[in-house]
Design a protein around this nucleic acid. Structure first.
Lengths: 335, 335
DNA sequence: CTGTTAGCGCGTTCAT
DNA sequence: ATGAACGCGCTAACAG
C-alpha cells in the first residue's frame, strides 16, 4: 500500500491537517514545519490519493472526450490537441467511442458523471436533442467540438463548414467547372458535415447552376462511399467535370474509382476533398482540399473548457476557427 | 447534487447497507425489499458514485493506455480495439500520449496510479528498464502491446516482428530482387520496430546477400523518412530494386520520392510496407505490406488485462498474433 | 435477511 | 500557526 497522508503526518511529527496544507499551498504554514513535511513526503515517496481528493472536492481532474470513432477520420488529431492542453493543466482524459449510437452516448455520459469528470468535450456525434437535454440535466460542463447545437446553448469550437464548402465549390466554378457532383453526408443530419452540403447548394445557386439529385450521393465519410458514389453517379449517365467530397477519404475513393475507369484526375475530372488529413498530402495525386485546423480545434476546445472549470469567463463562447483552401494536384482550371 | 445512497435508503425506508447490497447484487436480499429499493433508485434517478466506490474498493474501473502518439500510425486502431472490450466489461479508458518521452511516461504512470487505474496497456513507447522497474515497484498490472520486454516479465500481445520482416524480405528475394534497401527504425532501439531490421538482416544473410550500410536509412516511421531515405540512398549512387519499409507511411514517402525521380513502382523498384493501415489499400499504387491485426491486438490485450484483474489465470501470457503478407500493387516479380 | 458501524484518504471548519 | 474531528459516498465485517 502506498503511503497516505497519515503516514506523512506521523513521519513529520505533525497533524494531517498540516500536511494537507502544505500540499495544497493553503494558509501560511511555518517555513520550518513546511520543510519537515516536504522531507517526509520525499522520504515516503508520498503522493496524494486523487480519488480521495475527488470524493472530497467533487472534482476528479479528469475530462471526458466523446468521439464517434477514434480510429477514423479526424478524431485522433483533435484528441491529440485536446490531450496536450489537458496534460498542461494536469487533467487526464477519458476517451469514449460512441459510434453515433445515442444509447451508447448516454451510457458513456452516465459513467462519466459517476466518475465525476469535471467536463466533457463532445465531438460531432449524434447531437440528438435528447442527449443535449441529458447533458444539461446532469449539469455537465460541455464543449461542442466540430459542431454546434441549433440553439447555441453549448459553447463550441468549429469552422464555418457551410461557408468553407461554399467557398470551395465556388472556386471550382470559377475554375471553369460546369458540372459539379457532391459526395458526402446527407443534408438531413444534424452534425457539421451536413452543412457542407448546404454550402455546396449555396455555391451552385449563387452561380445559377441547378442542384441535381442525380449528381449527389450520400453515405458515410469513408473511401468506399467515394468509390461507390462516383460509380453510381456515372452509371446514371452523368459525367461531372468536378467532384466535391465531404472528406479526404471520399476523395481518395473517388480518384481510385475514376482511375479504374481510365478517367484522369485532374485532367478529365477535378476532385476536391475536405479536412486535410495527413494522407491527403501524400496521396497521389496530392489532394486539393479544405483544411480544418484539427489539432487546434482540440486544443482550443480544451482551453475553453479549462477556463470554464476555473469559472473564469471566456472572451468567446463560440469559436469559429479559420479554414483554408489548399491547392494541390487534383483540381485543374478549365477556362 | 445528485442523490446519494443515503437518499435512496431513506426513500425506500431501509438502511444504506441494504441499498448497497441490491446495487452490488450481493447476498440474497428479500425480493420485496429489493423491489422497494429499485423503485426508490428509479424515482431518484440515483446512480452510485464510482469515486466513492473506488476509494473503498481500491478499484476505479478505469484502465490507462499509454501510446506514443494517438494521432500517428497504428494507435487509433489499437486503442479502438481496447476500448471496445473495456466498454464491454464496464471499464473506462484513460488515454495518454507519451511522445516516447520517458519523463512524460513516468509522470503519466504516476498520475494513473494516483487515480487508481486498475491496470495499464503500454504500447511500444520507450520501454526503458527504468520505466519497467517503476511499473513493477508500483505493482501496476501492465500488458505490453506491440512489443515485449527482454525478460518477458510482463504479459504481452505482439506479432513476431522479426519473423514477419524476414518473411517479407525473403518473399522479395524469391521474387527475384537482388538489391534490397531498408528504411525504418534503427536496430539499437528497444521496441518492436527495431526487430524488423533484424528480420531484414536475417533474410539477407540466409540468402547469402550482404547487408550494406549504404542501403539502409534510419528514422521515425513517417512518410518524410521514406522520402528522405530513398533520396539519400540513391544519391549515394545505389539503385535498389526493392525497398523494405518499417511502416506504410514510409512506403508512401518512398513511392512519392521515386515518382519525383520518374522511377516507376513496381516496374522499376518494388516497395513493401508494414502494418497495413487503412490508407495502404487506398493509396496509388496499392501498397503491398505486412498486415498487423491492430484492432485485435488492442482487444486481445484488453481481454488479457481484464482476465488478470479478475485474477483468473490466462491460458497464455504472451500472445503472438498472426501477421499476414498482403500482396497488392507495389511489388513485382523479377524472375 | 437486514441494520449498525468502521474506515477508505483527504479537505475543512472550529478551536486553541 | 497548528491540531482534533467531522464527513464526502460507499463497502464490508459484524451483530442481530
Amino acid at each position: 500500500m502506498a503511503a497516505s497522508i497519515k503516514d506523512v503526518a506521523r513521519e513529520a511529527g505533525v497533524s494531517i491537517a498540516t500536511v494537507s496544507r502544505v500540499i495544497n499551498k493553503v494558509d501560511v504554514v511555518n517555513e520550518e514545519t513546511k520543510k519537515k513535511v516536504k522531507e517526509a513526503i520525499d522520504r515516503l515517496g508520498y503522493s496524494p490519493n486523487i480519488v480521495a481528493q475527488s470524493l472530497k472536492t467533487q472534482r476528479s481532474r479528469s475530462i471526458g472526450i466523446l468521439v464517434p470513432d477514434i480510429s477514423s477520420q479526424v478524431y485522433p488529431e483533435i484528441v491529440r490537441g485536446a490531450e496536450d492542453v489537458a496534460n498542461m493543466y494536469d487533467y487526464s482524459i477519458i476517451l469514449c467511442n460512441s459510434d453515433f449510437d445515442m444509447e451508447k452516448e448516454k451510457k458513456y455520459i452516465k459513467v462519466m458523471k459517476e466518475k465525476m469528470v469535471d467536463g466533457l468535450l463532445y465531438t460531432s456525434s449524434s447531437l440528438e436533442p435528447e442527449i443535449l437535454e441529458y447533458l444539461q440535466s446532469l449539469q455537465m460542463k460541455t464543449i461542442l467540438v466540430e459542431t454546434t447545437d441549433e440553439a447555441q446553448q453549448f459553447p463550441s469550437v468549429t469552422i464555418d463548414n457551410r461557408r468553407a464548402a461554399k467557398e470551395a465549390v465556388t472556386r471550382l466554378i470559377e475554375d471553369g467547372h460546369r458540372s459539379i457532383a457532391y459526395i458526402g453526408s446527407k443534408k438531413a443530419k444534424r452534425n457539421a458535415w451536413a452543412k457542407r452540403f448546404e454550402g455546396y447548394e449555396d455555391a451552385l445557386k449563387e452561380a445559377g447552376m441547378p442542384v441535381e439529385e442525380a449528381m449527389t450521393y450520400y453515405g458515410d465519410l469513408k473511401a468506399q462511399t467515394g468509390y461507390n458514389g462516383i460509380t453510381s453517379i456515372m452509371s446514371s449517365g452523368k459525367r461531372p467535370d468536378a467532384v466535391f467530397c465531404g472528406s479526404d477519404e471520399i476523395a481518395m475513393g473517388v480518384i481510385n474509382a475514376l482511375r479504374d475507369h481510365d478517367i484522369r484526375v485532374p485532367e478529365d475530372v477535378s476532385v476536391m476533398g475536405f479536412n486535410d488529413i495527413y494522407e491527403a498530402s501524400i496521396f497521389y495525386p496530392k489532394i486539393s482540399t479544405v483544411a480544418q485546423p484539427l489539432y487546434d480545434m482540440g486544443s482550443v476546445a480544451m482551453r475553453l473548457l479549462v477556463k470554464k472549470l476555473k469559472n473564469e469567463l471566456a472572451e468567446e463562447d463560440h469559436y469559429v476557427l479559420p479554414y483554408q483552401l489548399v491547392d494541390r494536384d487534383t483540381v485543374k482550371k478549365r477556362n
